[in-house]
Simulated assay, not measured.
Amino acid sequence: MEVILKEDVNKLGHRGDVVKVADGYGRNYLLPEKLAIEATLANKAVIEQMKASAVRKSAKEKTGAEQLATQLSEVELVFERKVGENEHLFGSVTSGDIAQQLEAKGFTIDRRKISLEEPLKTIGEYHVPVKLHREVTSHVKVTVKGDQPEAEAVTTTA
């Protein structure tokens, strides 16, 4: 099935591209979510207009993303988690946790835009990339702490 993308889709293409996808993926995901339209002759005639507006929209989004990137670079998030041996966390800090705390600070960012290779499972300081636009990536400082101070080893003298 050939479709025309109305929005950028990760690992598929950018707005205005004509791509060939599996029938089920197109019918069950791209079309209902309004991420694409079928590539018919009538719709192909509209592609040029879409591409022109996509360039304008992309430029506007990029400007907004750059402003947001400068604000996000100053944000520092702190997470407290239970800690086991070797400063290994019982839970982990995921992209969903980061998105939730960013939202609490007034930034609405989809968790899928937070590029964590895998959840953070150890105590430390991390710089987590946030892809705001295909050309704009910001970094958020994330600090993971233990929820209790390290317990001193109790020694008993006989």
Rank of each mutant, 00 (worst) to 15 (best):
M1S: 12
E2K: 11
V3F: 04
V3K: 05
I4K: 02
V9A: 10
N10T: 15
N10A: 15
K11Y: 11
L12Q: 05
R15V: 12
D17I: 00
V18H: 02
V18I: 10
V19T: 01
A22G: 10
G24M: 07
Y25D: 03
G26V: 04
R27V: 04
Y29S: 06
L30R: 00
A36M: 00
A36E: 00
N43K: 06
N43H: 08
N43R: 05
E48I: 09
E48Q: 10
M50Q: 06
M50L: 08
M50K: 08
K51M: 15
A54P: 02
A54D: 02
V55S: 10
S58C: 06
A59P: 09
K62C: 03
T63F: 14
G64R: 08
E66D: 10
Q67W: 10
Q67Y: 08
L68K: 01
A69G: 01
L72T: 01
S73D: 12
E74D: 08
V75K: 02
E76Q: 05
L77E: 04
L77W: 00
F79D: 00
E80N: 10
R81D: 02
K82N: 07
E85F: 03
N86L: 09
E87L: 03
E87I: 02
H88S: 14
F90T: 05
G91T: 00
S92C: 00
S92G: 03
D97N: 06
D97F: 01
Q101G: 08
G106Q: 02
G106Y: 00
F107L: 05
I109M: 04
R111M: 02
R111Y: 01
R112T: 07
R112A: 06
I114H: 00
S115Y: 15
S115G: 13
S115A: 12
E118C: 14
L120K: 03
L120G: 00
K121S: 06
I123Y: 08
H127R: 15
H127N: 15
V130D: 08
V130N: 06
L132D: 07
H133T: 04
T137Y: 05
T137V: 12
T137K: 07
H139Y: 15
K141G: 10
V142R: 00
G146L: 05
D147K: 09
Q148W: 13
Q148R: 14
E152R: 15
V154E: 10
V154S: 09
V154W: 09
V154Q: 08
T156L: 14
